[in-house]
Simulated scan of single mutants.
Amino acid sequence: MGGDVGAGHRVPTLFAANRGTMLAVAGGGSASVKVWDTATWDIVATLSIPRPEGTKPTDKSSSKKFVLSVAWSPDGRRIACGSMDGTVSVFDADRAKFLHHLEGHFMPVRSLVFSPVEPRLLFTGSDDTNVHMYDAEGKTLVGAMSGHAGWVLSVDVSSDGAAVATGSSDRTVRLWDISMRGAVQTMSNHTDQVWGVAFRPGGMPGRLASVSDDKSISLYDYS
């Protein structure tokens, strides 16, 4: 194995890319994302989030950049990660190069996902209770959706790109219509915070799953 994920560290986010054997890993309180080749278990790239301009290597402000979430665009060209300070960083995956920040959130970004049908479109969920929609190439906030009463802990996009699902510390799951920029359904069957939501993959919309700290998994049908 070419590297150590970090003994004794909890790695809160893993994303397995759709680029053969490549895996992007974030966690352990680090302000970086490591890209592994799982065929050899070598680290092939380390994507470091730049410090804010004017700070020194010893400044504690850089610790606020540690990564809480990571996503790979469906075309494999971009890697995005959400940080503790509310910023989203976008990298060129092939060149392992930082491109730019996406701003708009002011609290930790715990989940983010690219649209499976529009690689430029990135959805983010934050402790500020909002869901943002960005043009990740144009560095533009193109939409915002609000309604949760607590942190947005998880975000996913349906296979047809028409709907977004979110899970929250307010113990609800919300289904959002992207074209309407609004929630069309709220599911309140969980009794604790919802850490994960996922649409059925493979181009078959209509089924959604959620997982909660109440130790249950819920399945939903939607139209």
Rank of each mutant, 00 (worst) to 15 (best):
G125C: 09
S126G: 01
S126R: 01
D127Y: 12
D127K: 00
D127G: 01
D128T: 07
D128G: 00
T129D: 04
T129E: 08
N130Q: 09
N130I: 01
N130W: 04
N130D: 11
V131H: 00
M133C: 14
Y134S: 04
Y134P: 06
D135Q: 02
D135A: 03
A136S: 15
A136W: 04
A136Q: 07
E137Y: 15
G138Q: 10
G138A: 13
G138M: 10
T140S: 12
T140Q: 14
T140P: 01
L141G: 00
L141I: 00
L141H: 02
L141D: 07
V142P: 11
G143I: 02
G143T: 01
A144K: 14
A144Y: 05
S146P: 00
S146Y: 07
G147S: 07
G147E: 07
G147Q: 10
G147L: 01
G147H: 07
H148P: 14
H148E: 12
H148L: 04
H148D: 07
H148R: 11
A149D: 14
G150D: 09
G150S: 11
W151C: 11
V152H: 10
V152A: 08
V152N: 07
V152R: 04
L153P: 05
L153H: 09
S154E: 06
S154A: 15
S154T: 06
V155G: 13
D156T: 13
D156V: 06
D156S: 15
V157H: 07
V157I: 14
V157F: 06
S159D: 12
D160L: 01
D160W: 02
D160E: 10
G161H: 09
A162P: 04
A162G: 12
A162Y: 06
A163T: 15
A163L: 14
A163K: 14
A163W: 15
V164D: 08
V164Q: 03
A165N: 12
A165T: 15
A165E: 14
T166L: 00
G167N: 05
G167A: 03
S168D: 08
S168A: 07
S168P: 12
S168T: 08
S169N: 08
D170K: 06
R171E: 14
R171Q: 13
R171M: 11
T172R: 01
T172N: 09
T172K: 04
T172W: 00
V173M: 02
R174C: 05
L175M: 11
L175D: 12
L175P: 11
W176R: 13
W176M: 07
D177K: 05
D177T: 09
I178R: 13
I178C: 03
I178S: 01
I178D: 04
